[in-house]
Write a protein that binds this DNA or RNA. Sequence first.
DNA 1: TCGAACCCTGACATCAATGTGAAGGTCAAG
DNA 2: CTTGACCTTCACATTGATGTCAGGGTTCGA
Lengths: 128, 128
Amino acid sequence: MRIGELADRAGASPRLLRYYEEQGLLKPGRSANGYREYDEALVERVRQIRSLLDSGLSTRTIREVLPCLTSGQYHVRGATPETLAALEHEHRQLAERVECLSRSRDAVAAYLRAVHELRETPVPAGAC
Amino acid sequence: MRIGELADRAGASPRLLRYYEEQGLLKPGRSANGYREYDEALVERVRQIRSLLDSGLSTRTIREVLPCLTSGQYHVRGATPETLAALEHEHRQLAERVECLSRSRDAVAAYLRAVHELRETPVPAGAC
DNA sequence: TCGAACCCTGACATCAATGTGAAGGTCAAG
DNA sequence: CTTGACCTTCACATTGATGTCAGGGTTCGA
C-alpha cells in the first residue's frame, strides 16, 4: 500500500511516516514511479511505534528495541556486545518506567475510589 | 531550603525548578530578599515529578495527577466534575502506557534470554 | 570592603516530534 | 487533455523540556 493508506490505517500522518523512515524505524520499498510501498504488516508496527513514542521512548530507543519486538524469529546472531549492553540498559529503563507509571496509575485509581466513596457518604455537617 | 540545595538533592537544575513552578507543579514561598524558599518534603516531590516526566507524562498531566499522588489526606472535596473527568481520562492513559511498556519490557527480556541461551548452545554447523 | 557564591528575571538556543507549505511529478477519471 | 488527488523533496514553523547567558541584587567570609 502507499503512504496515505498506511497513514490512515495506522493513525499517523504521511509526514510522520517519512520521519520514522528517516529515523530508521521503517524501510519501505519504492515502486517504479518513486512512491513508497508498504506492506500490510506495517500497520501494526506503526501503531506500536506510536504507542512507544507516546510512552516517552525516543526514536533512538525504539530503533534499538524494535527488532526484539517483532515477534517471530529473533535475529540473534547479528547482535553485537554493544547492542546487547544497550538492550540490557533499555530493559532496566523500561522496567523503571513501568514501576513509576504503575504507582501513579494506582495512586490515581485510589484517589478516584476515595472520591466515589465520599460521594455516596453525605458530607457531615461542618466538614471542610 | 533555597533553590540550589533543592536542585542538588533532587537531581534537577535550578532552571528546571523555576520551570516546574511556572508550570504550576511547585509553589515555593519567598523569603524577605525575594529568594524562593522550599521545604524538606519537596525533594521527594521533585524526584517524583522527574520520574513522571521521564516516563513521558507532560507537565500538564502531572499537574493533574500530582494532587492525588501526594499521599496523606485527599483534598477530595475540592474536586470539580471536570477535574474528575480529566482524572478518569488520565487514569486510562496511564493504564494504557503501563500495558504498552510492560509488553515492550517483556519482549526485550525475552530477546535477551534467547540470546543468552544461544550463547551457551554452540552454533550448529551451517546455521545462518 | 571586596570577591565568591548564591539568588533574581528575562531572553535566546537547542533537541525531538510534528505540522505546514511550496514546487513539482504521476495517474486515473471525466 | 485537463483536473484532482495522490505522491515526491526540501525547508521553515512550533511545542515542550531544557540549557545558557546577560545584567543585576544579596550574603558571607577573608
